[in-house]
Design a binder for these strands. Structure first.
Length: 274
DNA sequence: AACGATCCCTGTTGGC
DNA sequence: TGCCAACAGGGATCGT
C-alpha cells in the first residue's frame, strides 16, 4: 500500500529519468484515472508538448512540474505504480496511463484497483484542489502542527492520523506502526494526548517514515507496492504490529491484537500501548 | 463541524 | 480440487 515513503521512493526514482525531457504523446486507456479532471481531454491537452522541469510531493500526492505552470498530479491509491521503460517495450497489465518522452522512454501508470488517479492542474486549480487543504507533510510536521490539530478532537487518534487534513502522508500501516513506537493506544481520543505524548507521537511518525523510506517502502504481497524498477521494498519484514495479530510483540512478548476501526484493520500491543 | 458508515475496485485468500 | 464469498484500503460522499 503506497503511503508517504513509497510515494517519495517513487519520486526519487522518477526525478532523474524525467526532468529535462519533453512529453511527446499521452495515452489514457481507463476513464476512471481522470475522475479528478473536469474534462478528460484536459489532461492530455495540458501536458503534451511540455518539458518536465521538476518533481515534488506532498503527503501521498506526487507532482511532476511542467513548463508553463502546469502540474501533473499522480495519486497511487492503494495499488498504483509508476515505472519508466522504453516506449516500445511490453506494457504491464492494468497500465492505464502512458506518457511518452522525447528520449524514447515512457512513464507508465499501472493500477489494478484503480483507486489512484492522475490530473493536470493550473496554478489556480491547484490552489482550489482538495489536496492543498491537507495538513503539513508528515515528514516535516512538528509537535505544534499535530497538537494544534488534535485539540478538542474526540475521534480515535488512529483515525485522525489517517485523516490527511490533520497530517498528510500517513496511511493504515504506518499509523499502526507509529502508534506502537509512540506507546500510544490507537483508541485514545485525539484530544486526550498531552504535550509529552504529542511529542512522542511526532518523533515516532518521523522515525517510522524514515525507516520505511530507508528500506525502500513496504511490500506485503505481489499486488502491493514495488519500487519503480520492480524491486520489492523490505520494510514489511520490520513491521512491529501491522499484520501480526496473535504473534508476540517484539518488545514485550504480549500477543498483538487486531480490531476494525473506521472500516480499517488496526493492530496494537496491549502490553506496550496505553 | 465532527464523526462514522458506505461505496468504489479487483487480485488474493480461505472456507466448504 | 474447485468455486465463491470475504478481505484488503484511500478517499469521496452522505447521513447523523
Amino acid at each position: 500500500m503506497p503511503e508517504l515513503p513509497e510515494v517519495e521512493a517513487t519520486r526519487r526514482h522518477l526525478d532523474p529519468l524525467a526532468v529535462g525531457k519533453t512529453i511527446t504523446r499521452v495515452r489514457v486507456t481507463h476513464p476512471r484515472m481522470l475522475r479528478r479532471q473536469d474534462r478528460p481531454s484536459d489532461f492530455v491537452d495540458r501536458i503534451v508538448g511540455r518539458r518536465i522541469v521538476g518533481t515534488g510531493r506532498h503527503g501521498k500526492h506526487l507532482f511532476v512540474e511542467l513548463e508553463g505552470e502546469i502540474t501533473w498530479v499522480m495519486h497511487l491509491g492503494m495499488s498504483g505504480r509508476v515505472s519508466v521503460a522504453a516506449s516500445d517495450g511490453a506494457v504491464p497489465p492494468h497500465t492505464h496511463v502512458v506518457v511518452e518522452l522525447d528520449d524514447g522512454t515512457a512513464i507508465r501508470f499501472t493500477d489494478p484497483r484503480t483507486f489512484g488517479y492522475v490530473c493536470a492542474l493550473t496554478p489556480d486549480e491547484r490552489l482550489d484542489a482538495t489536496f492543498v487543504r491537507h495538513g503539513p507533510d508528515a515528514l516535516t510536521a512538528d509537535v505544534a502542527d499535530l497538537a494544534g490539530r488534535l485539540v478538542g478532537r474526540t475521534a480515535a487518534i488512529k483515525a485522525l492520523l489517517c485523516d490527511q487534513t490533520i497530517v498528510s502522508g500517513i496511511g493504515n500501516i504506518y499509523a499502526d506502526e507509529a502508534l506502537h513506537r509512540a506507546r500510544l493506544s490507537p483508541f485514545r481520543p485525539g484530544g486526550s494526548l498531552d504535550e509529552v505524548e504529542c511529542g512522542r507521537l511526532v518523533a515516532a511518525i518521523h522515525d517510522t517514515l524514515d525507516a520505511g523510506l530507508a528500506a525502500g517502502g513496504t511490500t506485503l504481497d505481489d499486488l502491493a507496492y514495488l519500487l519503480p524498477d520492480g524491486r520489492a521494498g523490505d520494510f514489511s519484514e520490520r513491521l512491529a504490529v501491522y499484520g501480526r495479530e496473535g504473534e508476540p510483540c517484539h518488545t514485550c512478548g504480549t500477543p498483538i491484537r487486531r480490531a476494525v476501526l473506521r472500516g480499517r484493520s488496526t493492530h496494537w500491543c496491549d502490553g506496550c500501548q496505553a
